[in-house]
Simulated assay, not measured.
Amino acid sequence: MSTAAPASSVPASPGPPHRRRRRRARPLMSAVVTITALLCALVGGIGWYFAGVAIEVDHSAEYPLTIEDAGNGTVTLPREPGTERPGAWALVWKGGRALLGPVVGGNDEHVVRKVSPVEGALVKDAPAMIDHWMYDGDPKTALGLPFQDVTYPSEVGPMPAWLVPGTSDKGTWVIGVHGRNADKAETFRVMRTVHSLGMPMLSIAYRNDVGAPPSQDRRNHLGDKEWHDVVSAMGYARAHGATGVVLYGWSMGGAMAMTTLQRDPSFVRGVVLDSPVLDWSATLDKQGDARHLPAFMTGIAKRVLQWRIGIDLADFDMRRYAPHLRTPVLMFTTEDDATVANGPAFAFARKAPPGTVTHIPTPGDHTESWNVDPAAYERSLVAFLKRVG
């Protein structure tokens, strides 16, 4: 009988279970990679789309209201903040326009306002919108002001403009620069005031406007390219007798005016800003919040935008330029601006040398300072233009 101890048992190789786990791990890792790729594509796609919205050229009109009734010099509209506000407003529908008067009736659901038709007939159930530009057409048909259709040379071709003459071509001209995807009609509201002071006013179209030469890529560049058209307009004014200019910019037109001032200030006597974009990065953050985008996704969209049109958004933060400002600025901002971030404008006014920026906050939404109180707006504008003109 053998006395050797029995061989100790050796644990069975766990190889097959490991192989099974590896086989299970492969599809799991594949799923993780696929999901990650899909998420990256989704985030990148949303960033690409949001960036595209910011640089899209779009001149279409929207009519979110319905005319509920009209007659006897009144119009009935759905009651909402935009239809019941006091101030100066127009009502626009396809084929027509009217100036709205005071509220004279209504209930919780409807508002009745006096109305003065300007063009076309008010029709019940017609889609419509409230228009804070007020007028349409040209300076003669809209305001009864004499004007000339002129063109000024630019990098991309001859640009159309309206020239409302002053008492003399000599002296300081006002150059009106409308906002993104707007047109020259945005400048109508101040034309009478400028004309009453005897100052020539040149209201310009710029690249990608209706009736104007397009840029090569047919995209908005947030003022990075468009400001060159402002410089070209200044050259036209100088060639026709101007001894200086006041740049008057609405929204993105304000960004263009300030970029022009920053880079070519010698001929600029003053700047008027109405709801200006003074920091594109902050404004894009505001727009992202309005679309409920997470902050990181808005950040991706901004990086995509910078790559697509070759700009650095930091170059458009005018708070950095404010301490170096030497040219007088009149600036209007609105407390309920849903389009442009107002914080940079307030900071710009604080950082500028004392007395350089006259900042007038008003009620209203984007570029509506004139509409909520035309008389007060015009008093401030007259005082400023007399000082710098």
Rank of each mutant, 00 (worst) to 15 (best):
R79L: 13
A88N: 02
R79M: 11
A98T: 01
F50W: 05
R24C: 10
R26C: 12
R22S: 08
C40I: 15
E62T: 15
L28F: 14
N72C: 03
V92Q: 02
A90S: 05
E62L: 11
R79G: 04
G45L: 12
V57L: 04
A70F: 07
V57M: 02
R23Q: 10
A37L: 15
L77R: 00
E56W: 11
G71A: 06
P81K: 09
P102V: 05
W48F: 13
W89M: 03
R19T: 03
M29E: 10
A41V: 15
R85H: 04
V33K: 05
I55R: 11
E62K: 13
Y49P: 02
G82F: 07
G95L: 03
R20V: 11
R85G: 00
A88S: 09
V32Q: 01
A98Y: 01
P81V: 14
H18E: 05
A41D: 05
H59E: 07
E68I: 10
N72W: 08
E68L: 15
I35H: 11
R19Q: 09
L100A: 00
G101P: 02
R26L: 15
L77Y: 04
E68Y: 10
A54C: 05
G73W: 09
M29L: 14
H59Y: 09
R20L: 13
D58C: 09
R20N: 08
R26W: 14
E62V: 15
V75I: 11
G44H: 12
A70L: 09
S60R: 11
L65M: 06
W48K: 05
G73N: 06
T76M: 09
V53P: 01
V32N: 00
I46L: 11
R19F: 14
P81E: 06
G73R: 03
L39C: 15
P102E: 09
M29A: 14
L65E: 00
A31W: 12
F50Q: 04
G95D: 03
P64R: 02
L39E: 10
R79C: 07
W48C: 07
L77H: 01
G87H: 04
L42K: 14
L99M: 08
D58R: 09
A41F: 13
T76K: 01
K94L: 10
G87C: 05
D58A: 07
A25I: 14
A51Q: 03
R23T: 10
G44D: 12
L99Y: 02
G73Q: 06
T83M: 12
W93F: 08
G44R: 11
D69T: 15
S60M: 06
G101Q: 03
P102G: 06
A61V: 15
P102N: 03
I55Y: 11
R97D: 00
L39H: 10
M29G: 12
E62D: 14
R19K: 07
V33Y: 06
T76F: 04
G52N: 03
E80Q: 12
P81Y: 06
